[in-house]
Design a protein around this nucleic acid. Structure first.
Length: 942
RNA sequence: GCCUAGGUGGUGGAACUGGUAGACACGCAGGACUUAAAAUCCUGUUCGCCUUAAAGCGAGUGCGGGUUCGAUUCCCGCCCUAGGUACCA
């Protein structure tokens, strides 16, 4: 029989399912290997041809590792809490659980179609109560922990309480809110229970506090920083504003440095590591204090200002060495000191300026970086060393959110400060002898010796920094300080379809529910909208109280909660006692290979590392980093097709369509056309006419008798009519062809537009492969004769090649090599069992169905192929005793000459020079030099 | 602006540590089989020049330099594309 992919694929998919071929045990006798895909959100649109790219690669890798004798964990599940199902619920009233269930079913069908070797017995769904029970449990562990800086790890909150009881808060080195107070042990004991809880909340790793949050009115919820892109929500693209709110947060900043250091040890793509480094944004510098008292406001101020008596203006700088170049201070307009610092003379100006900046949107403020603006408060601060008066300004180039919201301006070293100084005519003080062209721009050099700089005059950068920090510390006016851009992650969402936060309120303070009462189930509500009083949808749940008396937290957890630990659940998915058993974790440890998109760089991948580190501190897991190696598969873009509709003189659309090549001769508008009725950019007129009623009597202006469509590469999406469904490809060519083709398309990491054109080549290859095992009448026919040297050579080349390629994730080159191998064996008319059986094993990782069928036809037990042994490569079959040397003259290849590899340099030289054709190229000259690299090249230099 | 990755035929791409540039495939052209089509098979296909042909000559991996017997690969400068990021003090 000819290659009947439909029958073969259906048969084996059923076989694998029935026999649970890919079910994996936590078996300690074999070495483990954990291959993980980023689990999908099951959207209503289903999978398009781009989604499986990474899954195919990870499946090939998993199958390969199995053949290599590893016990491979290769699971799949669903990140099934999320906005789209909830938005749909708001529109239709259908419970998000039902939508989600339907979508998951569809996803499963599509995934099953592709022959993946997932162990579905370990499937997880983040919206399943048996799963989110543990998400809530981890939340509780975080709530019950604080970060001890002395040990650089998280600890139980009990150890903090013990410290407070023993010696108060003095000397406690913790990551905490800025408003932590200093108290003694006695003072602690005198505090009421509530006061103690309030204080502890400032230390807990998940905490509730009033903070400025990203509020998205259209979605009715707060968003984490990584969910906001350029002032708009990542999902939906709605505007986001800043708002002060009581909110749950995760103290991820406690882990900032460990998150940064950990990047050194993991094998991740460099761009992704860079993104995380930048997101964490460590900068090493110093805090410097500028005192305001005594005698301010100065410079004409009339009223003495007591609000800030004795207060200091704190400034963060990465260049303390430039301290003597400070000629003014700049505060963010929102800085809390601004109103107190403003003198009556300056009041109007400052008020105007603040009003002006408030009018500007976030976007305007970012895009308009050319215009220099600011206003003088009228007040002065004292330079911490010289004591000189420094004017205090406000300007919107200083951001409240970073550092202290105030900067010391050094116009000679910083371009923004320089522009500001020029604009407002403030002094520009040179501080290094090598600074040049200060009348044109700032010079941020660290070279040279200091001038105009008091105690550091004549010193170099490094010496100056050390001396200055010592001096500032002595005076109590500053200290070395590391600053991070990373903010604590907002953890609550005012939404329905998420994990309930296992917290209730008593006297306004949050308390955890009893662990035994987990999971705290998501209650039923009549509508999925906020309540009339503006509370989140959970506020609609009736009689939803803790022990019938205390109010539950009404926010739910964000999307990233469930995905921040799911890889552990796969290790022991059915465990009802723990999130995963100790033994299971000890065996599987961490993810060896993680494949997924780079869009999760600063979200999921950062949060997961954070939770993992916390779980390690708490003693539940072994590894500091969860994902040893990570690969980003490229995005498969859509290839959109267009038709061009003629526009008449009145500017109205007609029903005539112009072929792409002629469109410049007419006035047209472009319309997306469904790519499924276009082949090689030629429109199927018949299908086009029947696609929509309005096109039924369309006219066409053809070129060369055809209607040619325009082409553009865009994101694959329904609205652009460029979605290719993998099901359609599978129906036409089979899953094995699709798998091979997606790999053949190019390097895994590269983004590329989908183009079905080349798929025929891969399909042909599989038919050719099938033919090797069959005679001309398509009867299965394999010979038991000993293979020839050439046949063995072809086999062992592919054994080695595929091994090398898979180990370096170069799947596209393997596919080429398979083609070469099958072409060679076809030319050799090879049908020897000894060659073909091994070839079946090697190919099985890529094309599991066809190889499973042939494996059985070869007389092996059905279904055992997945656990067969990868054939051993034997160099002996590849050893040659001759080589066709390229003979080049001055580095230009001229001809080939076959020479024995046994000869040494001088013998080869003699042979080459004696050759008549070589003499022709030498043109009678004798070469100045002969370069000979054994097995590579002979180069004659003349 | 900064960071990161990349730039190779008509197209997707290959060339792993410097050693025959364009493997493999698509497309295209020509041919075989066929009444015809599909399928299959064969031949050619970087560009330019020259030639009846065989063959030959020259150029060529974004651009300009350099190192080297030899550079797609290493170094310097520039241009372009994609992704990220931004008054971050």
């Amino acid at each position: 029989m000819d290659y009947q992919f439909k029958d073969i694929e259906a048969k084996w998919q059923q076989f694998w399912f029935k026999n649970q071929t890919y079910r994996v045990e936590n078996n300690t006798s074999k070495p483990k290997y954990y291959v993980l895909d980023m689990f999908p959100y099951p959207s209503g649109a289903g999978l398009h041809v781009g989604h499986p790219l990474g899954y195919i690669a990870s499946d090939i890798f998993s199958r390969y590792k199995r053949l290599k004798g590893f016990n491979v964990l290769h699971p799949m599940g669903y990140d099934s809490f999320g906005l789209p199902a909830e938005q749909y619920a708001i529109q239709t009233g259908q419970h998000p659980a039902i939508t989600t269930e339907t979508n998951i079913k569809r996803y499963r069908e599509q995934l099953d179609n592709l022959g993946f070797s997932f162990d579905w017995s370990r499937e997880v769904r983040t919206s399943d109560p048996n799963y989110y029970k543990w998400t809530q449990w981890i939340f509780m562990q975080l709530f019950n922990s604080w970060y001890n800086l002395e040990k650089d790890k998280a600890e139980s909150i009990d150890t903090l309480i013990a410290k407070f009881e023993k010696s108060g808060s003095k000397g406690v080195q913790a990551v905490c809110d800025e408003d932590c107070t200093i108290f003694t042990a006695d003072e602690w004991k005198q505090k009421s229970k509530e006061e103690q809880q309030k204080e502890l909340l400032k230390y807990r790793l998940t905490y509730l506090r009033e903070s400025t949050v990203n509020w998205c009115p259209a979605l009715g919820t707060v968003l984490a920083n990584d969910e906001v892109k350029e002032g708009f929500s990542e999902r939906g693209g709605y505007p986001v504003e800043q708002k002060k709110m009581m909110q749950w947060s995760m103290r991820i900043t406690a882990y900032a440095d460990r998150l940064l250091r950990g990047l050194e040890e993991i094998d991740w793509p460099e761009p992704l590591k860079e993104m995380q480094r930048h997101w964490i944004g460590k900068s090493v510098g110093a805090m410097v204090s500028f005192s305001l008292a005594p005698g301010f406001p100065k410079g004409g101020g009339t009223e003495p200002n007591d609000d800030l008596a004795g207060a200091r203006l704190e400034v963060f700088t990465t260049r303390v060495d430039t301290l003597f170049g400070v000629s003014f201070l700049v505060l963010a307009p929102e800085h809390e000191f601004v109103s107190s610092l403003t003198t009556s003379e300056q009041k109007e100006e400052i008020a105007n300026y603040i009003a002006q900046t408030q009018k500007k949107s976030e976007l305007d403020r970012m895009s308009d970086i050319k215009t220099v603006s600011g206003a003088f408060t009228g007040s002065y601060a004292k330079h911490p060393i010289t004591g000189t008066d420094i004017p205090i300004w406000i300007a919107d180039y200083v951001l409240v959110g970073y550092g202290t919201g105030a900067v010391m301006a050094v116009p000679s070293g910083d371009q923004r400060d320089w522009l500001f100084a020029k604009h407002f005519n403030l002094p520009i003080i040179p501080i290094l002898d090598v600074q040049k062209e200060l009348d044109i721009q700032a010079d941020p050099t660290k070279e040279g010796k200091y001038i105009n700089s008091g105690l550091i005059n004549g010193l170099s950068y490094k010496e100056a920094v050390r001396l200055l920090i010592d001096e500032l510390e002595d005076r109590g006016m500053g200290k070395a300080k590391v600053n991070y851009r990373l903010r604590d992650a907002i953890f609550g969402r005012q939404r329905y379809w998420g994990e309930p936060v296992p917290v209730y309120f008593k006297d306004g303070l949050p308390y955890l529910v009893d662990e035994k009462e987990l999971p705290l189930l998501l209650p039923e509500v009549d509508k999925y909208l906020p309540t009339e009083s503006g509370e989140p949808p959970l506020g609609r749940a009736e009689n939803w109280n803790y022990h019938d008396q205390f109010e539950y937290e009404l926010s739910t957890m964000p999307g990233w909660a469930g995905s921040s630990w799911y890889w552990y659940r796969y290790m022991d998915a059915q465990n009802s006692q723990e999130f995963a058993g100790k033994e299971a974790i000890a065996y599987w440890q961490d993810v060896d290979l993680y494949i997924g998109g780079s869009e999760h760089a600063t979200g999921h991948l950062l949060y997961s590392r954070f939770w993992n580190k916390f779980l390690k501190d708490a003693g539940y897991v072994k590894e500091e980093e969860p994902f040893k190696k990570l690969i980003n598969q490229g995005m498969i873009q859509g290839r959109s097709n267009f038709v061009y509709r003629l526009v008449n003189e009145e500017g109205k659309s007609t029903n005539t369509f112009v072929s792409a090549g002629l469109r410049n001769q007419y006035k047209t508008i472009a319309l997306h056309v469904d790519v499924n009725i276009v082949e090689n950019d030629v429109l199927d007129i018949h299908q086009f006419k029947s696609s929509r009623a309005e096109f039924a009597d369309a006219d066409f202006i053809f070129e060369g008798g055809k209607y040619v469509c325009g082409v553009e590469v865009e994101k694959m999406s329904k609205s652009k009519f460029n979605v290719i469904n993998p099901d359609d490809i599978v129906a036409r060519y089979g899953a094995d062809t699709l798998r091979l083709y997606e790999m053949f398309l190019g390097p895994l990491e590269q983004s590329k537009p989908w183009n079905t054109n080349g798929i025929e080549g891969v399909f042909k290859f599989l038919r050719k492969f099938w033919k090797l095992f069959h005679d001309d009448a398509f009867n299965f026919f394999v010979s038991d004769q000993e293979p020839s040297k050439a046949e063995y050579k072809a086999l062992h080349k592919i054994i080695r090649k595929v091994e090398e390629d898979i180990e370096r994730f170069s799947f596209n080159t393997s596919v080429s090599s398979f083609m070469i191998c099958v072409n060679e064996l076809t030319d050799l008319k090879c049908n020897k069992r000894k060659v073909l059986q091994d070839l079946v094993i090697v190919l099985s990782a890529y094309a599991p169905h066809i190889t499973e069928e042939l494996w059985m036809l070869l007389g092996n037990e059905a279904g055992t192929l997945s656990y067969a042994k990868y054939p051993k490569f034997d160099e002996a079959y590849l050893i040659e005793n001759e080589f066709a040397y390229p003979i080049s003259v001055n580095g230009k290849m001229k001809m080939n000459l076959t020479i024995s590899l046994g000869l040494d340099a001088s013998e080869v030289e003699q042979l080459v020079l004696a050759n008549g054709d070589v003499q022709k190229y030498l043109d009678g000259q004798s070469p100045k030099k002969v370069i000979f690299v054994k097995g590579k090249i002979v180069n004659l230099v003349i």
